[in-house]
Design a binder for these strands. Structure first.
Lengths: 206, 206
DNA sequence: CCCCTTCTGTACCGAACGGTGCGGAACTGC
DNA sequence: GCAGTTCCGCACCGTTCGGTACAGAAGGGG
C-alpha cells in the first residue's frame, strides 16, 4: 500500500535478473515432479533451470522454498483442472471432470507421469518431512474443496438427501491418488480412463 | 541339490552370527516403509537393525539388495492379505477381502502408515530408479494375480460373461493404491473402510 | 563520471552419503 | 592347542549433499 508506486516501476535499481523466474520455476517443478523432493538435488534443479546455485538462492530462498513455489505453480498449471471441475453445474459433472482431469494430468505427454502432489514426497527421511506434510495438506485441501461442493449439491437437491459429501470427496480423491500411482508406474491414459469410468459407475443420483 | 546334506547342518564353521537375520530384516523393512528407499540412510537402517554397517553388507549385500529382501519380507508379511484374498470363493469376496486387507495393512497400529509397495520409491533420483522400477513391477504383479483370478471367475460364471478381468483388476489396484496414499497422509481406518465399501458398491453381479 | 544496489560465476564449506580395509574376536575341526 | 573360517567394530575412503563467501559484472541515480 505504501509503495503502490513501486508496482509501476519497470526498471528497479541494480543489475537486472538474467533469467525468467517463471520459466525457471517451471523447470524446477518438472524436476520435483519427476524425481521427488529428496531425489531432486540442487545440481539437478539448477541445471534444469539454467541458473547457478547462487541465483537460485537469491531468487527463491532455499530448496524448500523453491519446492513450495513449484507446488504453487503446479496448482495453477497442471492441477488447474481441479477448480475447473468444481465449477461444473452438477455433482456428477464435477466428479467426472475431476477424475478425467486427473487422468489427463497424470498421463500428459511431455510431462512427468503421475502427480507432483502425490509423488513429490510420500515417504521421506528427515530432510523431506516438511515437504511430505505440505503435500498431505495439499491433498486434504483438495478433499475439502470437493466436500464443500458436494455439500452444496446436497443442499440444492442435486445429490440425494442423506448423502455424505465428505465420503464422496474422500472417495474421489482416493481414486485420483490411485490413478496417480498407476500413472507413475506406467499405466496408459486409456487404461486409466476406463478405471475412472468404472469408479463413477455407481455415483448416487436423485 | 549337491549340498542337500548342508541343509541339516546346524553349526557351520566360523564365528556364528550375532544377530537374528529375520528380526533385522523386519526392522529394515519398517525403515524403508516409513522413510522410502532414498530417505532411509545406511545409518538409519543399521541403527534400527542393531548391527554395524559391515555386518549389514556381509549379510545382505548392499542397500539395494537389502531393499529387495525387505520387500520380499513385506510381501510375505504385511501384504500377505493379497494371496489370502485370492483364495476367496467368489470374485466379490476376493475384491472385498483385497480392499479391506489393504485398508487394514495401511493403517495398522504399530506399523508405518501406507504401503511399502507404493511409498517405498514412487518418484526418485538416479539412486532410487532401480527401487522405483522394482516396486512398479511389484504392483503390476498384483494386478496380474487379480486379473487371473477374475478370468477364472468369468470362466466359471461367477462374473458376468463379457466382464473385463483386466479392468476389474486394475480398478481394484488403483483404489488400493489410493488408499495407501490416503493412509500415508493420515486418513483413519474408518475413513478408508467407508471408501473401500463405496468402491465395491457397483461390483458386477451375475 | 562515481556510487550504490542487485545479480552472477567460482570456489568452497562442513556434514552426510553409500561402501570398504583391516585387525581382532568367536566359533569348528583336527 | 592350533589352524581355518566367519563375523564384528572401528576407522576411513571418495563423492555428493544443501548452502554460502566473495569478487566482479551490469544496471540506475546523482
Amino acid at each position: 500500500m505504501i509503495d503502490h508506486v513501486n508496482t509501476q516501476r519497470k526498471a528497479p535499481i541494480g543489475r537486472p535478473r538474467g533469467f525468467d523466474v517463471e520459466k525457471a520455476l517451471d523447470q524446477a517443478m518438472r524436476v520435483f515432479w519427476e524425481q521427488g523432493y529428496e531425489g531432486a538435488s540442487l545440481t539437478d534443479l539448477t541445471n534444469a533451470m539454467g541458473i547457478s546455485r547462487t541465483s537460485m538462492y537469491a531468487a527463491f530462498g532455499s530448496k524448500e522454498d523453491l519446492f513450495h513455489q513449484a507446488l504453487q505453480r503446479y496448482t495453477d498449471g497442471p492441477a488447474a483442472y481441479v477448480p475447473r471441475a468444481l465449477e461444473e453445474s452438477t455433482a456428477w459433472q464435477v466428479a467426472t471432470a475431476f477424475l478425467n482431469g486427473s487422468v489427463r494430468a497424470t498421463t500428459s505427454p511431455g510431462c512427468p507421469a503421475g502427480c507432483l502432489g502425490v509423488q513429490g514426497s510420500l515417504a521421506a527421511g528427515e530432510a523431506g518431512l516438511s515437504a511430505r506434510d505440505t503435500l498431505a495438506a495439499w491433498r486434504d485441501n483438495g478433499i475439502s474443496l470437493l466436500r464443500e461442493r458436494f455439500q452444496r449439491a446436497v443442499d440444492e437437491g442435486d445429490l440425494p438427501a442423506g448423502t455424505d459429501p465428505g465420503l464422496l470427496a474422500r472417495y474421489l480423491m482416493t481414486v485420483a491418488n490411485g490413478i496417480a500411482v498407476q500413472a507413475a508406474g506406467g499405466a496408459t491414459r486409456d487404461d486409466l480412463h476406463m478405471v475412472a469410468d468404472m469408479a463413477l459407475r455407481h455415483w448416487p443420483r436423485t
